[in-house]
Amino acid sequence: MIRTILLTLLAAVITVVVGLTLWIFSAVGATSQNESVVNFTVAKGEGIRSIAGRLEKDQLISARLPWTLYTVLTGRHTSLIPGTYTFQTAVTGKAVVEQLVAGPTEEREVTVTIPEGERLEEIATILENKGVVDAAAFLSLTKQPSDFVQTWTTDLFASKPPTVDLEGYLFPDTYRFFENTPAETVVRRMIENTDRRLDATIRAKILTSGRSLHEILTLASILEMELKTPSDRAIAADLFLRRMAAGIALQSDATVNYVTGKSRLQPTIADTEVESPYNTYRNKGLPPGPIANPGLGAINAAITPTPNEFFFYLTAPGGQTIWSKTYEEHLTKKRRYLDS
């Protein structure tokens, strides 16, 4: 009889402990309800109850009691570092604890430079290596951005096909991010930068050009990857536009490299035959979307091309661009610069 009672009590205790544990971890795993960035200061000597109360008031945690229990039970309550912190939107109670233990925000802000011409995968790697965001989360959002794009309030995406990802729309620049920033915050910052850099003057020029913003970014991305100088890019922009008007394939090596994932100066014949809508050897006109994220120089070249009579070009091993007006001239120069 006594044994039965003891077992019953033990089972009850285990049930309560398990239930309490699940409740605590569920609460600290919940996402915060703060709709904007919150600056939060922990005073020197401030107790855990005071901190938890203010976190709850600022909507950074769902409830003070489970957060306090979690912090105490994990031994973190004695390791909270005084100072000022900046919390992004959609943070969990567990993440708040981790941040308070790691130290003030100022010590964990990092500078990240995204070079011109980087692809989404390359940007994701740079950001992850800096501790800013998980690469997989970043790529998940930028590769399938339909919900994200629909909430954008400007006309930046007006001409972007819904099936195309955010390649070309993340402005290459130097940014400052906090470690472990949510992917949506990072992507939004970069797109806002693009929106701001493509100011009214640039958009007016795009409108005058007769091409859409998406077409300009797509052409600019090819120019970014194909040529190195502003003057060469402006010449090539006119060349590409005239080839399209004449019904001639662009035959951009950069688009082939985008498809194959290689970085060849001169793709193989097999590479140029790979089936893909982005392969401009097999398909006429521009690819469905940008092949990289271009800078302002390439964008301006796409908007205001330099008129010329060239139809062909190649890049010599030393980086010099060699222009030709006819295919025969192009073949002669190809033998001279690339086949020797």
Rank of each mutant, 00 (worst) to 15 (best):
V37T: 13
V38H: 07
V38L: 01
N39I: 03
F40P: 07
T41F: 02
V42N: 05
A43N: 13
A43G: 03
K44Y: 06
K44T: 14
K44M: 05
E46I: 02
I48F: 02
R49W: 04
S50A: 08
A52Q: 06
A52I: 04
G53C: 01
G53R: 10
R54A: 00
R54N: 10
R54H: 09
R54W: 02
E56F: 01
K57R: 11
Q59A: 07
Q59Y: 05
I61F: 03
I61V: 04
P66S: 00
W67G: 03
W67R: 04
T71D: 04
V72N: 02
V72D: 06
L73F: 13
T74E: 10
T74P: 03
R76M: 08
R76L: 07
H77C: 01
H77T: 05
T78N: 10
S79V: 04
S79T: 12
S79L: 11
L80G: 09
I81K: 15
P82D: 05
T84G: 04
T84D: 04
Y85L: 05
Y85K: 03
Y85Q: 08
T86N: 06
Q88S: 13
T89L: 01
T89Q: 13
T89K: 15
V91G: 03
G93V: 00
K94V: 00
A95M: 06
A95W: 05
V97S: 06
E98W: 02
E98H: 03
Q99P: 00
Q99S: 10
Q99G: 01
Q99Y: 01
L100A: 08
V101F: 00
V101P: 04
G103M: 04
G103N: 07
P104H: 06
E106D: 12
E107K: 13
R108N: 15
R108A: 08
T111I: 07
T111M: 06
T111V: 12
T111W: 02
T113Q: 08
I114F: 12
E116C: 02
E116F: 04
E118M: 14
L120R: 11
E121W: 10
E121F: 11
E121C: 00
I123K: 10
I123G: 08
A124W: 13
I126E: 12
E128Y: 09
E128P: 11
N129S: 14
N129A: 09
N129P: 07
N129C: 03
K130E: 15
K130H: 15
V132H: 08
V133L: 06
D134K: 14
D134C: 01
A135W: 09
A136V: 10
L139H: 11
S140D: 15
S140F: 06
L141N: 14
T142V: 15
K143S: 08
K143Y: 12
Q144S: 14
P145E: 08
P145M: 11
P145H: 07
S146N: 14
F148C: 09
V149D: 02
V149S: 01
V149I: 14
W152Y: 09
T153K: 14
T153G: 01
T153I: 07
T153E: 14
L156C: 05
A158W: 00
T163Q: 15
V164Q: 12
V164H: 03
L166Q: 07
G168E: 12
Y169C: 06
L170N: 09
L170A: 09
L170W: 11
L170M: 13
